[in-house]
Nucleic acid binder design. Sequence first.
DNA 1: CGCCTTTGACCCGCGC
DNA 2: GCGCGGGTCAAAGGCG
Length: 176
Amino acid sequence: MDYPQNPNPNFNATYVSEFVDTSEFELSDFLMLHDGSREEFSLQNVVSSDNVTGGSSVDFSGTETSSRNSNLKCKNGVKKNKVEAELRVAFRTKSDLDVMDDGFKWRKYGKKMVKNSPNPRNYFKCSSEGCRVKKRVERDKEDPSYVITTYEGVHNHESPCVVYYYNQMPLMKPHG
DNA sequence: CGCCTTTGACCCGCGC
DNA sequence: GCGCGGGTCAAAGGCG
C-alpha cells in the first residue's frame, strides 16, 4: 500500500461517539481524516455518551468504558490524565471488510476473543512515530455485517491520506 | 531488510 | 486471595 485508499463504498457509519470528557469535542478533527472523500462518509447519528449509556443498539460502548472515564492507568500503574486518555469514538459501520482503511496506517498488536461476542476483537496502534492513537475493531455480535470500530486518542499528525491529496491537488492547498 | 501479522504469555483491574 | 476478562507485549515468522 503506497497510499491509503478511500474508505470502502459501504462505509456507512451509523453510530456512536463517546469521549472521555464531554466538555469539548471537535468532530471536525475526526472527519478531517476523510477529507478527500467526505461524501462517502455519512455519519448518520452522533450521540453523546449520556445517550449511549441510556440504551442503544450497541451495548458495548455503555458497558465497558463508562466506568473508566475519569482516568486510565498505564502499565506501570501511573495514572494518565484526561489529556493523555483523550477521546474515544466508536463507529458502527456496515462493511464486508474486517478492517477499513481510514487513511491512517495502523499496526495490529493484538487479537482477543471477547466474552460477549463470538467474534474476535482486534487491536491496532497508529504506525506513525510518537502517535499513540489506538483502535479496536470487532464485528457486531447482533449483526455480523456491521463492524464496530473504536478509536482512542487523537493523532498528533496529519492523515497521510490528506497529505497525499494535498500533494496531488495543489490547487486545493489553503493559502498561507 | 524493514515492517507487518500472528499468537501465546503476561499484566492489571475488578468482583466474589 | 483467587479467578476471570480485557488489554498489551514481544518473539517468531511472513511478505514485498
